[in-house]
Design a binder for these strands. Structure first.
Lengths: 197, 197
DNA sequence: GCCTGTTGTTTGAACGCTCAATCAACAGGC
DNA sequence: GCCTGTTGATTGAGCGTTCAAACAACAGGC
C-alpha cells in the first residue's frame, strides 16, 4: 500500500466521519502513521487530498458502489431500490451517523474551488446516470415519454434527502419512509404505463 | 436592536453564507460592531450562538417562512408548491449558492451536541408538520389512507435534495426538475384518488 | 568489490497565523 | 456605591504548511 493510497483511504474515512474542515492534517498523519513531510510530498495541500478523494469516488463508483449493490439483482427497477438498500445498510450499521460522502461535502464546502465543485457535480452526475440506465432498461414499464434524466435526478434527491433526515433524527425510519414514498411513485408510474397500453 | 438580536441576525446570515465552522467569532464581531467581551457576555460560547440561531428559526417559521409564501395562496396543495417556490426564489437570487440553513447545518455538524441535534430535528419536524397540515386540508383529493406524515417528509426530502443539487451544479434547473417530479407525483395521487371515488 | 554522485523519499521540529475564549479594567445608570 | 454591561488587548491551543537534514536505492566508473 503506497503512502498515497494510505492517505486517500484514511481521508475517505475521516472526511465522512468528521467532515473536511474538522479533519486536521494531524488526524490524517496519526491515522496513516506518516509524517507531515511525506504527506506534503504526495499532496501539495490539504485541498489536493480532497481532490484525490473525490477522484477516487468518481473512479470507483462501479466496483465500490454499483457492483456490490447489484450483485444478484437483474430487474432494472429493483436495481434502483437495491442501490438505495445499500445506503440503508450504511445508515443502520453506523447508528445513523452515516451521510453520503458527496452530499456531506457538497453542503459543507460553501465556496469550493471550481475543480472541487466540478468533481462534486461529476460524482452526482455519474450516480444519476447509473440510475438513468436502469430507467432506460425498464423501457415500456414506464410511461411513454418519461424524462429519465429528471427521474434519475429525483431518485438522487430522494436518497440525499432521506439520508439527511435519518441522520438528523438518528432514526433509519426516516430513510425507510422516503424510500417507501419513492416506491409508491414508481408503482403509480408503472400503473399509468400499463393503463395507457 | 439589542446586542443579542444583532448577533443572531448576523449569525443567521454568516452561517448560511460560510457555514458554522468557517464563520469565526471575529466575523461576527466585525459584522455587528461589537467587541468580543460583549458577545461572550450574551453567549457563553460559539455553540450558544448556534443554539440561538436554531431557536430563532424554530420560533420564526410562521412569519419568516410560511406567511410570506402563503400570502395569496388558498389551495392546500398549491401552498406546498408555493413554499417550494419560495426556496426557488432564494436559490435564484443567490446565484445558486443558497442552501437550506437547517439542512446545511445538519450535514456540516457531524457530531453535534444533543441540544443542537434536537433543535435541527425540531426544525425539520415543524417544516414537515406545516406541509402535513396542507395535506390534511387537501382531504379527499388524496387517496384514502394516504400517510400524510410520510408524504410530508417526502416533500422535505425533495426540497433538500433539490436545493443540494442546484447548489452543487450552480443551476436552478436541478431544483426545478425535482419540483416538477414532485408535481407529477401529486398529479398521480390526485388521479388515483379520483378514480377510486 | 568498492567508491562516488544522483535521485527520490522520509523525517520531524519549527513557523506564522487564526481561532475561540478570557479577564482585569472601566463606564453609566440608579 | 453598587451593579449591569462593555472594552479590547491577551492567551494558548491548534491549524496548514515548510524545510534543512537524513536516508535508501541504485547506476556507472574503475
Amino acid at each position: 500500500m503506497t503512502p498515497r493510497e494510505k492517505i486517500i483511504y484514511a481521508a475517505m474515512e475521516l472526511f465522512g466521519l468528521k467532515g473536511y474542515n474538522s479533519t486536521s492534517i494531524a488526524d490524517l498523519l496519526s491515522r496513516t502513521q506518516l509524517n507531515s513531510g511525506s504527506l506534503y510530498h504526495v499532496f501539495p495541500s490539504k485541498q489536493d487530498v480532497l481532490i484525490g478523494v473525490l477522484e477516487a469516488y468518481r473512479d470507483g463508483i462501479e466496483e465500490m458502489l454499483l457492483e456490490p449493490a447489484w450483485g444478484q439483482v437483474d430487474d432494472p427497477i429493483e436495481k434502483i431500490f437495491a442501490l438505495l438498500g445499500g445506503y440503508r445498510t450504511m445508515i443502520a450499521e453506523s447508528d445513523c451517523t452515516y451521510g453520503c460522502p458527496i452530499g456531506s461535502l457538497a453542503l459543507e464546502l460553501h465556496e469550493p474551488d471550481p475543480q472541487v465543485r466540478d468533481l462534486l457535480a461529476v460524482n452526482f452526475e455519474n450516480w444519476a446516470k447509473a440510475v438513468q440506465r436502469c430507467l432506460e432498461a425498464a423501457g415500456p414499464r414506464l410511461p411513454k415519454g418519461t424524462d429519465t434524466n429528471a427521474l434519475s435526478e429525483f431518485v438522487l434527491t430522494a436518497m440525499e434527502g432521506g439520508v439527511m433526515q435519518a441522520r438528523t433524527h438518528r432514526d433509519v425510519a426516516y430513510f425507510d419512509r422516503t424510500v417507501e414514498q419513492l416506491r409508491a411513485h414508481f408503482a403509480l408510474l408503472e400503473q399509468a404505463a400499463k393503463q395507457a397500453a
